[in-house]
Design a protein around this nucleic acid. Structure first.
Lengths: 225, 225
DNA sequence: CCTACCGATCGGTAGG
DNA sequence: CCTACCGATCGGTAGG
C-alpha cells in the first residue's frame, strides 16, 4: 500500500540482463547508476522542464550514451515518475522525523506549524531540492495512473497539516477556513521556489518566521498587542 | 517606454506582403487572425506547456495550416512572448480600473487589499485566464531580453500592492515584513491556479474573503474579539 | 551499458 | 495564408 516503504526495489523486476547482478558487459559499478540518472534528471527537469529535457541530456549528465537510460527505465515518463516518487517519499519521511522531534514536548500548535513550515522550506529550497519542484510543476506529464498515485502521496504529506491548523483555528489564532487556509499557505510556500535564491537576504529560518507572522495571529486574546 | 500602450501595433512592422492590407491570396478576414493565434496559443501553452505544444497544434486551433503561424510571428518563442505581454498588459489595465473604482472613497487599506486580491483571482481564475498562468510558468522559455521586459511589467503590476501593505503594516494589521508578505501573499494567490476549479465549492469572492482572513488581523486593537 | 540505427515529429522556410 | 519541403532532433530499440 505504501510505495515509499520499498526504497531499493525497482518497479519492474526484469531490467537486469540475466546472470551476474553487476559487471555485465560495460557496467562500471553497481545499480546506483540508476540513482545518478534520477538525480541528474531531477536537476534537468527542474531547470528546463520535462518536455524540454532530452533523454540524451540526462544520459550525458550521468556520463552515459544516449540509449543507456532505457536500460534503467522503460521510458522518459517513467524516469519522471521515479523522480517524483523519490522526492515525495523523502519529503514524507523527513516530515515525520521533524514532527517526532517535538512530539514529546508539550503540545503547541504554533510551534508545530513552525516545524511544518520550516521543514517545507527545507524540502523546497534546501540542498538537493529539485525533486519536489519537479513534482509540483510537471505532474501534467504523468499518466493518469501515475498522477493518481502521486496525489495520494501528496495527500499523505499535507494530512499532517490539518490537525495543527484545526487546533490553531479552534484557539482563534487562525481565522480562515482550515481547508482553504491549508491550500493558501502551501501555495505561499510552494511559490517561494520561484523567487527564493540562497544567500539572497532571507534565510530559511527568516522565511519561516515571516510566514508564521503572516498567517497566525499573535498569541491568545489575553496576550494583546 | 510602456509596451502596453500600443495594443494594436505589431512588434515588427513588416509582415504584411505589400499592397492591400487584407484579402491577400487566401486571407479570410482581417488582421485579427493574429489574435486568434494568441488566444489559441495561450490555451494550449497553459494546458500542455510551451515545449510540449507544437506550432502545428496552434495553427490547427486557429484553423490554419502548419506554416501559417510564421506569417504572423517570427518564431514560436515570439508567440509565447506575445501571449505573456498581452496578458500582463490586460492585467495591469484592469488592476488600474479596479483601484480607480474605489479611489474616491475614504481610504481603507483593508478594502484596498480586498480589491487587489479579488482582481488578482479574477485575472488568474476568471474567464480567459490562460495568459497569466502561462506568464507565471513559462518564463524560462523566453530570451533573456524578453524575460527582462516581462519582469518590468510584473514589477509594475506588483507595485500597486506595496503602499497598501505598508499602510496595513503601519496600523498593526499586517505583522510580517512588507516585502516578504507581498511575495508570500502573491504566491498563495498564484498557486490557486493549480487547484481551483470553477464551480467547485468556493467562489472568487469566497476565496478573497478567506485570503483576507488568513493574511490580515481583525480590525484595530480597540476592536478585540 | 555501448553502437548503430529507425520512424516520427518538430520549427521553420521558399515561393506563390 | 497554403503547399511542399528541409535539416535537426527526439524517444526508443536491437543486438551484443
Amino acid at each position: 500500500m505504501n510505495v515509499c516503504a520499498l526504497p531499493a526495489v525497482p518497479e519492474d523486476p526484469s531490467p537486469r540482463p540475466r546472470g551476474r547482478p553487476r559487471k555485465t558487459l560495460a557496467g562500471r559499478d553497481d545499480g546506483n547508476r540508476r540513482r545518478e540518472l534520477i538525480d541528474g534528471a531531477a536537476r534537468l527537469f527542474r531547470q528546463n522542464g520535462f518536455a524540454a529535457t532530452s533523454t540524451r541530456d540526462i544520459a550525458a549528465a550521468a556520463g552515459m550514451r544516449s540509449g543507456s537510460p532505457f536500460y534503467h527505465f522503460k521510458s522518459k515518463g517513467d524516469l519522471l515518475h521515479a523522480v517524483m516518487e523519490e522526492g515525495m517519499c523523502a519529503a514524507i519521511d523527513r516530515q515525520k522525523q521533524a514532527l517526532n522531534a517535538v512530539a514529546a514536548l508539550p503540545r503547541d500548535p504554533r510551534r508545530d506549524l513552525a516545524v511544518l513550515i520550516r521543514h517545507h522550506f527545507d524540502v523546497l529550497l534546501g540542498p538537493g531540492s529539485d525533486f519536489i519542484p519537479v513534482m509540483l510543476y510537471e505532474a501534467r506529464s504523468l499518466t493518469d495512473e501515475q498522477r493518481a498515485g502521486m496525489a495520494l502521496l501528496q495527500e499523505q504529506y499535507e494530512a499532517a497539516w490539518t490537525p495543527v491548523l484545526a487546533l490553531l483555528h479552534a484557539r482563534g489564532l487562525l481565522r480562515a477556513d482550515v481547508k482553504l487556509a491549508r491550500l493558501l499557505m502551501l501555495g505561499a510556500l510552494n511559490w517561494s521556489a520561484q523567487w527564493y535564491r540562497p544567500g539572497g537576504g532571507a534565510s530559511l529560518d527568516g522565511l519561516t518566521a515571516a510566514a508564521l507572522a503572516l498567517f497566525i495571529a499573535k498569541d491568545g486574546p489575553s496576550n494583546t498587542v
